[in-house]
């Protein structure tokens, strides 16, 4: 295998705005680059790439493969897949990382089969084995019941999609520099088999769970929709957002935008407070990487206590308002 000693991060963008996970991927990619001695690069396919270059350099990219075409404004699988596939074949990087977003989860599996590349989905941990020169890709499977480390020994590139909010973003500096390689990809022969006619952001005015530093979540144990009040009060006192278990979403107590877990959002706040949540594996899958977990539950055997840093055994209807009160007092 005569591949280039490069680690690529797929710089997902729409309308000239880079996705947040790109910076998390670059930060993690930097650690892998250090360990492997490979060069960290970004692959940027867009209508106009230049305004995004500085940010990519600032987060550690040493080289940007820059592809521009008016067709690359917003995501369309056929166009972007052709770009990525062509570059993977001409440049032959060792490793490619994508965010596990709606877009990443379309493009990565498509280009994996366009070549014969291995692709590990939704990784939560990456490491590099310097002896065998392979990427160690660790991810939860079976709804989080088990962790598996996946490798791709004989095919290149080694590719992974990575969950958002699992790796921390760390800037290198404000005025980092690097190389830009412009590559042209001819998209005129790609048939227009699908067309986007509308794109709507529904969550604009909603608390952004993914960005929140503090999250207070309610589960079935809160007893009813009216009790999300108590949860909201604690959340706003902490300056954070409200999360929820699927049981409360299914019961119609709160909208699905708040759901945390395997089929909801993955979050990584500084503090996650789980109130009246039993700690089913599918819920844990979405919040386990929080820096600090506080669980409030009246059942001392609830599995949520297995992942908690602090467990408060008691009735949330008393504990949560008390928590709010004492923090308010602290802030006064």
């Amino acid at each position: 295998m005569s591949t280039k000693k490069e680690i690529w991060v797929y710089a997902e963008q729409e309308n000239g705005k880079l996705a947040g996970t790109v910076f998390e991927l670059l930060s993690e990619g930097r650690k892998l680059a250090e360990k492997s001695g490979f060069t960290l690069c970004a692959l940027l396919a867009s209508a106009d790439g230049k305004p995004m270059h500085q940010e990519l350099f600032n987060y550690g990219a040493k080289k940007i493969y820059n592809v521009e075409d008016p067709k690359l404004v917003t995501y369309q699988n056929d166009y972007f897949a052709k770009v990525v596939d062509q570059l993977l074949k001409s440049e032959e990087p060792e490793i490619v990382l994508y965010g596990a977003s709606t877009i990443g989860r379309s493009i990565a599996p498509t280009v994996a089969v366009m070549g014969w590349a291995g692709l590990t989905a939704d990784c939560t941990e990456l490491d590099f084995d310097t002896e065998r020169n392979i990427l160690l890709q660790t991810r939860p499977a079976f709804g989080g019941n088990i962790m598996a480390t996946i490798i791709c020994p004989d095919h290149r590139p080694q590719m992974a999609t990575v969950r958002s909010n699992v790796f921390k973003k760390e800037k290198v500096g404000e005025a980092e520099t690097g190389e830009v390689v412009d590559i042209t990809v001819d998209l005129s022969d790609v048939p227009e088999r699908m067309k986007r006619i509308e794109s709507v952001e529904e969550e604009i005015n909603m608390v952004d769970l993914k960005a929140a530093e503090y999250i207070v979540s309610g589960g079935r144990g809160i007893g009813g929709p009216e009790n999300f009040d108590k949860i909201e009060k604690l959340a706003s006192t902490l300056g954070g957002a409200v999360g929820a278990s699927r049981a409360t979403v299914d019961a119609g107590w709160i909208s699905h935008h708040h759901q945390v877990g395997q089929t909801g959002k993955t979050v990584c706040p500084l503090i996650y407070v789980a109130c009246g949540i039993s700690g089913a594996i599918q819920h844990l899958a979405g919040m386990q990487s929080a820096d600090l977990i506080i669980a409030i539950n009246k059942d001392p055997d609830a599995p949520i206590f297995d992942v908690a840093d602090f467990g408060l055994v008691g009735d949330l209807h008393e504990v949560v308002p008390e928590f709010t009160k004492q923090i308010e007092a602290l802030k006064a």
């Binding site: 994996a112 291995g118 019941n145």
Partner: peptide
Amino acid sequence: PTKVNKVFAP
């Protein structure tokens, strides 16, 4: 292309 290298409990 991908192989399971190791499985372990969380």
